[in-house]
């Protein structure tokens, strides 16, 4: 087997919210160039895990390595430098709604480079929009776009700085099956064309098996199982089986889950 280099490595990550353990000792390695899928029930801490990997949150204990840099101990300036090396696609797209598509995509470029020729910037933007299949939409405002198009603009923004890795938080949530397939294909394409490492959080079983090189199943803040899609499909674990088949009966009890959710944090 080919020697794989570790791109991101999470070691024994623990995070408490208001005294409740949301991440409970998560350890996983993500290899360079692979598409790594994180799945798990709602509220099991997937987005929180992603936030730790992007340096948006600091853990209570544990480490997150991006390359050889430990994100949990870097200074503010160094964290910024690391942040420029990856992109992130948000669950709600998170485009700035007072900027048009072009300005949104070029925002990281304009902010992180001094006196770039506007012509070069607009060329780069055209190229990125071409990659996500949205050429010609430069001047539209985000409010004029459909959910799927916003997702793709968000994707173009995520790759505008030519990152080494891209994080996707539920890229296909709320999209119709065909657009889902389009977004999935896009993730795979970008992964190949730009040699990206992709980390995808998703609930969507179809896309899991379409895009994943490896899958991690999270449950109650712990990693239940990591493996290839086939290994997950044939898993002996009851929880994993219940989850991927969407069964009502099984070890995951719905009412028990509800008690775990702390609504105070939401209000």
């Amino acid at each position: 087997m080919r020697e794989k280099k570790v791109a991101i490595s999470v070691v024994d990550l623990v995070k408490y919210f208001d005294g409740r353990k949301v991440l409970d000792g998560i350890t996983l390695d993500i290899y360079q160039g692979e598409t790594f899928v994180i799945m798990g029930g709602s509220g099991c801490g997937k987005s929180t895990l992603l936030r730790h990997m992007t340096g948006a949150m600091r853990p209570d204990s544990g480490k997150v390595f991006f390359g050889d840099k430990d994100l949990t101990t870097l200074s503010e300036q160094e964290t910024e430098n690391v942040k420029r090396r990856f992109g992130m696609c948000f669950q709600s797209s998170a485009l700035l709604d007072y900027l048009n598509v072009e300005e949104n995509v070029s925002l990281p470029l304009c902010e992180h480079t001094n006196n770039f020729d506007p012509k070069i910037i607009s060329m780069l933007v055209k190229m990125k929009l071409g990659l996500v299949g949205l050429s010609g939409f430069e001047k539209l405002m985000p409010s004029m776009l459909s959910g799927g198009m916003k997702k793709r603009v968000g994707l173009a923004r995520a790759i505008s700085m030519d990152p080494e890795a891209v994080f996707y938080d539920e890229p296909t949530a709320g999209l119709d099956p065909i657009v889902c397939a389009v977004v999935d294909k896009l993730i795979l394409d970008l992964n190949k064309k730009l040699l990206l490492t992709s980390i995808v959080v998703t609930h969507n079983m179809e896309s899991v098996f379409r895009i994943a090189d490896r899958v991690a199943m999270l449950h109650k803040g712990r990693v239940l199982q990591i493996g290839t899609p086939d290994e997950i499909k044939n898993s002996k674990d009851d929880i994993v089986q219940q989850f991927i088949n969407g069964r009502l009966e099984g070890p995951i009890n719905f009412s028990e889950n509800i008690e775990d959710v702390n609504f105070a944090g939401e209000s």
Binding site: A56, T79, K83, A94, P108, H112, R157
Partner: peptide, 25 residues
């Protein structure tokens, strides 16, 4: 209203992830 709606729509978090300081920006 403007910054608040950006906050609840993850836009502030997006700025931070792009290494753009929201206070400065």
């Amino acid at each position: 209203a403007e910054i608040g709606s950006m906050q609840v729509n993850e836009q502030i978090e997006a700025l931070e992830t792009m290494a753009i300081n929201p206070v400065r920006f």
